[in-house]
Nucleic acid binder design. Sequence first.
DNA 1: GCCAACGTTGGC
DNA 2: GCCAACGTTGGC
Length: 139
Amino acid sequence: MRYWLFKSEPDTWGWPAQVAKGDAGEEWDGVRNYQARNFMREMRLGDRGFFYHSQSDKAVVGIVEVIKEAHPDSSTDDLRWECVDIKALRPFSQPVTLAMIKSDPRLAEMPLVKSPRLSVQPVAKDEWDIICAMGKTKS
DNA sequence: GCCAACGTTGGC
DNA sequence: GCCAACGTTGGC
């Protein structure tokens, strides 16, 4: 199993909206960046991801699961763009802020720190475990 | 609200 | 194919 991070503006599509979709989940559509799309193509059923709020929150707030592998993005006719479906798995009992992540040297190599604009990114297993521990949340 | 970083576009 | 201009994103 691999681990990922999905970034969203909470005012546009936040964790509560994701939770409201329940087990049916929702397309992670609207990504118009090749790097982010390529990561979604690598995702497999059952992979886990962090749900990150950018802008005002700047924190990891929940864990999601990939429930459908890459398929055409229904928000466009442009066949270049694909996306996966994800569902909310559980919230973080304590959100892990960007400041907390930046303050831990073990997390300095994360794209979140080095390339803050990449909206879908991979997370290494050890990084995953560290952040779950910080959030007092089962990995 | 500002600004830096980055990706994309379009002219040459 | 290069590069300048522009738009967008996200952190501060």
